[in-house]
Nucleic acid binder design. Structure first.
Lengths: 194, 194
DNA sequence: GTCTATATCAAGATAGAC
DNA sequence: GTCTATCTTGATATAGAC
């Protein structure tokens, strides 16, 4: 999808610039950015077509002129999220003398800064067919580098990181729990095989 | 709550028997059990007061005679879930020569057998004030035993297990991924500190 | 204890005029 | 491209009769 140069309707490319947003029409880009702010400010229930339209300054029905439906909107948000993760994770790993810790910190940071986006990205089965191509994989590469290409280890570490993050976001640890130490404990365990 | 012998309204105890269900009136118990089946069969969106009432054979408004509101219903489901986990986990650990693996297998098993209940139990902040007393803690005890009382290690292992489980339920690993091996890899790492 | 009737609210999406 | 108007669906919850 979105590879033909003269798209019509819902995925007009803009030729230059990289990233998911740059491949949207300006108006669609505005809508997606507003959606992101709305989601993060007021939570997932607030992300309705009506409220989103309010923020953009149009009627809900007009959004459908720019984005096929709500699923497409969410897929755009998720694609942007993966794109940012890929950037953040690559930068964290590059030139660190403790790449695993750096990556873990970047991962936790991303989730804490944008908890609702993180939940949107991880809390349901992915509609991969609606995502921008390659973004999911790009976000996963830095960890695979850290494990030296060991996929099983990468999956285990990812599961640990996701578990720590989502349980923290959902306030599932005891109120006073020292999560920094729990993180260090887990990472130390995984450093064994490394 | 529910400690006074002569409850009125929504938490009439039945004196003997243990467990959350036994402390509900028979009709409330029916409703909660029906809710559990409905949730597991058709997913969280199907768990509406109307559909639940259909299954029980009454009108939605009548449910409120037995359960205060939907939050109370969900809290009852979650309490039952914790109670079952506590049982399953204690049995898994007892008399196993590899308690960590046994516990992990039981944890994964619980989630795969009742994915919607598992999600309900873990996917949002807990209304602990609505839960049956002690059930959350009871479910956590076996793991704490396995780590010899090390809370930080227990938290890290729990995060790993929850991450593995929820990512599996959400189909977030690549289609052909060998999750058994990823589990073993993670557990082996955590066995280092043990 | 269960019912009917209703209040209240909100969602996603489309038709057709301008 | 945006609008108004509307369709369709569904939710939680309460009042008051029986």
């Amino acid at each position: 999808m979105s590879t033909t140069p003269a798209g019509r309707g819902h995925d007009l490319p803009t030729a230059d610039g990289v990233g998911v947003l740059s491949r949207l029409t300006p108006r669609a880009r505005e809508i997606v950015q507003a959606a992101r702010e709305l989601l993060e400010r007021d939570g997932p229930d607030a992300l309705s077509m009506r409220r989103l339209a309010d923020r953009v300054g149009m009627r809900a029905s007009s959004i459908y002129e720019h984005l096929r439906d709500k699923q497409a909107l969410e897929a755009a948000l998720i694609s942007v999220g993966f794109e940012e993760q890929a950037d953040l994770f690559a930068n964290a790993v590059r030139g660190s003398d403790d790449p695993l810790s750096a990556l873990a910190a970047a991962y936790r940071d991303f989730a804490r800064r944008q908890p609702h986006l993180y939940r949107l990205m991880t809390g349901r089965p992915l509609r991969r067919d609606l995502l921008a191509a390659g973004v999911e994989e790009a976000a996963a590469i830095p960890l695979l580098r850290v494990t030296g290409g060991d996929q099983q280890l990468a999956r285990a570490i990812w599961a640990f990181a996701h578990g720590m993050v989502i349980l923290e976001l959902n306030h599932r640890f005891p109120p006073g729990a020292d999560l920094d130490t729990a993180w260090r404990t887990g990472l130390a365990a995984f450093r064994g095989p490394l």
